[in-house]
Design a protein around this nucleic acid. Sequence first.
RNA 1: GCCCCCAUCGUCUAGGGGACUAGGACGUGGGCCUUUCAAGCCCAAAACCGGGGUUCGAAUCCCCGUGGGGGCACCA
Length: 494
Amino acid sequence: MLDPQPARVRFAPSPTGRFHIGGARTALYDFLLARQTGGQFILRIEDTDRKRFVPSAEDEIIESLHWLGLDWDEGPDIGGPYSPYRQSERTDIYRQHAEELVAHGHGYYCFCTPERLSQVRQRQQKLKQPPRYDGLCRKLDIEEARGRIADGESYVIRFKTPREGSTAAVDLLRGPITVENSSLDDYILLKSDGLPVYHLAAMVDDYLMEITHVFRGSEWLPTFPLHVLIYEALNWKQPIWVHLSIFLNPSGKGKMSKRDAGVREIYVLDLKQMGYLPEGLLNWIALMGWSYDDHTEFFTLEDLIEKFSLQKLHPSPAAVDYKKLDHFNGNHIRSLTTSELVDQLRPHFEREGLIVNEEILQEITPLVQERIRTLEEAVEIAGFFFREAPEPEPSELVGKKMTIDESIEAIRRSSEVVESFTTLDVESLEEALRALAEDLGLKAGQLFGILRIAVTGQRISTPLIESMVVIGKEEVLNRIAHALEKLESYTGAT
RNA sequence: GCCCCCAUCGUCUAGGGGACUAGGACGUGGGCCUUUCAAGCCCAAAACCGGGGUUCGAAUCCCCGUGGGGGCACCA
């Protein structure tokens, strides 16, 4: 299972938007391969697009990766031997390589304006031809071109894609992908603002940073042969290429996007807010595009590092399934120790504006651990522990198939039972309450239902008896008395 | 329109010529447990896109359809 060669793998997002689970999966696989082989995981920021640049994006990427526990060995924030790791700080390097391509006849200067380009495109579209650069500047005399540049004319550098033949690019998951060179364009490598485009920058950096395995989205498949052509033009040895398929919407129709039906959330930091654990999220996305065997599905990050393998990656697109996320998250919550869960839970209660009593939090954590799938659910079922006495609806205090008077009697007698205790303990309290129910001719569920509303104010909560013990005799009595008052002045009118 | 990729239960997947009356998980339905909600346990329904080949034999290999996805920018 262990790849003997230490892999150098990079995650190279562009800071143009928020960090979503698709990026997280790519980063995860990068991380796993690096850790498994004892290699390096590198973070590189591809910020060569000034127009789409979002200042806060890099921070979000970093925060998300840290939260997920995918720590890198080299990156813009910590530096490293191949620094800098932000492409906007490496512009000279790209220009140098673009010029080298020109010098060796694999690239050329182009002076066509965006206006002319769009006219050409329009014409081609009208003629139902594939939109491509028409090659006007391709045969320009190099000296003439240099002269125009010296005169200050705006220009770009294009790749001189071979007109003949075909190129085979080898993807690890799909084998060779072959296209006619004529179907490739003379792509722009260096923009008129002097900054490179992905096709140049990523190739140059991957090579110079000695990246051994490139994981990227399958949206790069169409230009994959171009990238190989660039490698060949520069006479460089290629890395191993792995194209990961995209995530589809829950419906399986279309690329996963924030707005589609069934999509709960796609941004890592928002999923965190919703109460998902890094482990749950990681387990979920790891299994979309990779599998271990025919029955193992619960993985910690450590497990994944140990068990991940390139051979088990597969190329078909996967629809996101949030029900499955819930399931994995619930499992990971259950595998936490109590004190770990306490720490995870605290901020979720506090975010709700609740004042968290540490002692109570400790006591209720085991109560919620078995029944929540997200941390937020703990707030739903156990928030009442940190709130003032509830104000239950009188109508809710009437037991199932019971009259108001019967319910009042049940509450009164319960109060007496609680009163008889010096301190509450689960076993005897349950015993006493069950005896009371029997005495009243009620099913335990009827009595407990009334008390649940009286004590917690909720229909759904942590187990009643345990909850009462945590709340304590005095406060339980207060709440029961309050409920009794409410019910006694209740006429039954709706 | 052109190019590229993909194709097993609703979903994520196991499977890489005979071990397949196709396995697991989520979800769904039913049952058990039960103080609510969960969790847990048991059971059930549920798939090899179609057609041609290759082969003694195909979910597995090839071709063609079909379906789905992606790409065709001085964005990544």
